[in-house]
Design a binder for these strands. Structure first.
Lengths: 228, 228
DNA sequence: TGCAACTGTTACAAAGCTGTCGCAAAAGGC
DNA sequence: GCCTTTTGCGACAGCTTTGTAACAGTTGCA
């Protein structure tokens, strides 16, 4: 199906977990679940999520400690962490934010607001999924209307080509491996040949070339593709 | 890195403004002040701040409307907006966040927490430690974009040369034996001739020499190679 | 139902990179 | 200065990676 943004929910208490999971799914997230900090670390190492929703209080490795660790390592630092906590004191809130959390929500929270705050983070990491207009060079992609223009000319892209371009435009310059693109464009648990990516990049290039000169997609031999 | 980060404070009420201004200055921000939305727009166009702290209630152009406008234009969209408001209802908070605000703080707020939240936004704009960019002398290698520059000139490296340079740059000055390089660059269980390292160092040197004078790679007779 | 658009796979060619060899040059050792 | 060891480097065949066209299967829609 569609390639949904992924969120990792780390919460040990079943009732909370269910409520959050339900709402996150309704928001259109692909959900990863962890009950302990250690489990969360494993999941993150294996399939890095787009966002992490993290309870402060966890058995063993606490949420705040996990957050600190994540923000220490360069490869996980960029993943937004929304911390949830029953600890509502000013010191705690500040401590959470200082530790590297990107937002801090106190229990009991408004589910609607929490979802809005998660969406704020999503906007940062996956702007196209959040319905934002992306621009790069003479390219313009509207995540809401799904329209793409190059140098003012509207292009017709197939759904896969659109998601591929959106993914590349979300982080211009960054090199995506074919595997990463399969994850983000095709979806986590879909199996397709690695080389299929090449074919779609080719198709996207062809479509882009109809409306402007120069190939905005860069092939990085041995690694993957990048925009610009 | 320029001296201080700049923050634009948009607040029409003198008492609030003073209190915030005082604390923001204490945080080390260079302060820009605006009392109305229109004024704020002018200032932003002229000297774009790193962060905007925005009161919802303003005469004429309201804070939320200004926020919406800012987030519509690509050139100002990246500037984080922290919205402050007396409107604490869930609908208002969600509306603020939906409009594009990066955070939403309800009056009366804790000044300490607000400052922490501002710092969170600052962290995003100015990442403390560069992600995966390695620099040494006039060399610059970006692990995210896979681009290598010497003295500003981009150079083209094959995958092996790239990994070799990255390995050397990770620990400038340190001498790597050929075996160590085979391990790190080629992989642990690949068998290739030791002398192959020499060839690739040669190729790397040649590529580097196209963009700058002087050989940054040092041959350590009897041991191996090192950078600088 | 039939059609048009889209998708994933495959095969093949072109491009680019890699590892090895051999010899020349350089660096030490004495 | 002479001999030994180590390194630099050009050449090249072979291999890997990438671009692309073709094709068959699906899907959505009128």
């Amino acid at each position: 199906m569609t390639a949904q943004p992924t969120i990792l929910l780390v919460e040990d208490e079943p009732a909370q977990r269910e409520a959050l999971a339900y709402n996150l799914r309704a928001e259109g997230f692909a959900l990863l679940l962890a009950e302990t900090g250690a489990e969360a670390e494993l999941i993150i190492a294996e399939t890095p999520p787009d966002i992490i929703l993290l309870d402060w209080m966890l058995p063993e490795l606490s949420g705040i400690e996990l957050c600190r660790r994540l923000k220490m390592r360069p490869e996980t630092r960029a993943i937004p962490v929304v911390m949830i906590s029953a600890r509502g004191e000013e010191v705690d809130r500040v401590r959470g934010l200082e530790t590297g959390a990107d937002d801090y929500v106190v229990k009991p929270y408004s589910m609607v607001e929490l979802m809005a705050r998660v969406r704020v983070q999503l906007r940062r990491v996956r702007p196209a999924s959040a319905g934002v207009v992306l621009e790069h060079g003479d390219l313009r992609l509207d995540g809401e209307t799904h329209r793409v223009h190059r140098a003012g000319v509207e292009l017709h892209l197939g759904p896969t080509e659109f998601r591929l371009l959106a993914t590349l435009m979300e982080r211009p310059g960054r090199v995506f491996t074919r595997e990463a693109l399969l994850d983000r464009v095709w979806g986590r648990d879909i199996y397709v040949e690695t080389r299929t990516v090449d074919v779609h990049v080719g198709r996207l290039r062809k479509a882009l070339s109809e409306a402007g000169a120069g190939d905005p997609i860069r092939t990085v031999r041995g690694s993957g593709y990048a925009l610009g």
